[in-house]
Design a protein around this nucleic acid. Structure first.
Lengths: 151, 151
DNA sequence: GCACTCCCGACCAAGCAGGTCAGGAAAGTC
DNA sequence: GACTTTCCTGACCTGCTTGGTCGGGAGTGC
């Protein structure tokens, strides 16, 4: 139940792309802006490219840009692109597991966990993120002081 | 963003303990009931014991039992006992990360993710689980058909 | 004393995390 | 055509995690 550095980096780099006005942005600029190791970031951007989230051009004046408008790219997509499916249990999707005996209803719990994560990540777009116009589901949760305490 | 086999096993074993009427339950019985490799399960139960969630006695008539009533043990506790803190980012708690530039508000998103997971896992007790009396937050989410589709 | 059951450290194979390195291949500039 | 720039890609690396297994030790009950 953790978020990898890769996923965090991927979203941060994508946010920079979403905020870029015109034309391709160099990998180095993204790395500098978000303090990410350049060569590691290049691998991440390559994955995002393979998943059709960003596009790239080489050479002078080359760089990366979003394949779609920033308000059509959700955080969930980016996380999936680099981390794979969200909230799998034992590397299989929760709806595919058979629980028996007294743990029969554990399946519904894992399903609910996945759904609640999706409720957040699928409703935040890169445009929301850079404009600081996060959806209510996020601001409501973040407004509760208890959400900020470690446990 | 995945649930480990260990966490899944731990909750399933704990559910069996919650359902056991009286006296200690042998590790072997738990392993059989939930189809968990016995020796692996023993390590998991040991961790649960160290975290004060279960108790154990050795020898004939020995076994494991819950340290507290089943309605006072949440799934969140069990997951934390074997997996550590929920929804850390880059191995640090989201409230401790400093985001700059265009990813400034990513922190609130990760905080919201953590809060929404907690909303589920901290509100389901072992008693709820074995009695099939899951709280509304779970049943509401599990009632949406879309929650069950892979993505 | 003996069977039973938990306790616990050592080990293991595979994979992932979080990178680094070295070179190749397109694109633009002169 | 040469040269620079920038992305593309595979190989490699260290250390840790996952999901276990093995073997023996130590309480407990009869």
């Amino acid at each position: 139940m953790r978020v990898s550095a890769k996923a965090d980096y991927a979203v941060r780099a994508a946010a920079e792309l979403a905020a870029a006005d015109e034309g391709p942005v160099k990998g180095e600029k993204l790395a500098d802006a978000q303090d990410i190791p350049l060569q590691f970031l290049e691998h991440i951007l390559l994955e995002l490219k393979h998943q059709g989230i960003v596009r790239a051009r080489r050479g002078a004046k080359g760089g990366y840009w979003l394949a779609r408008p920033a308000d059509e790219v959700t955080i969930a997509e980016i996380v999936r692109a680099v981390e794979g499916p969200i909230a799998h249990v034992q590397s299989t999707p929760p709806e595919a597991i058979e629980y028996r005996g007294n743990s029969e209803h554990l399946q519904e719990v894992w399903i609910a966990v996945r759904a609640s994560i999706r409720n957040v990540l699928e409703n935040v777009t890169l445009a929301d993120l850079v404009a600081d116009e996060l959806p209510d589901v996020v601001t409501d949760l973040a407004a509760v002081p208890d959400s900020w305490v470690a446990r």
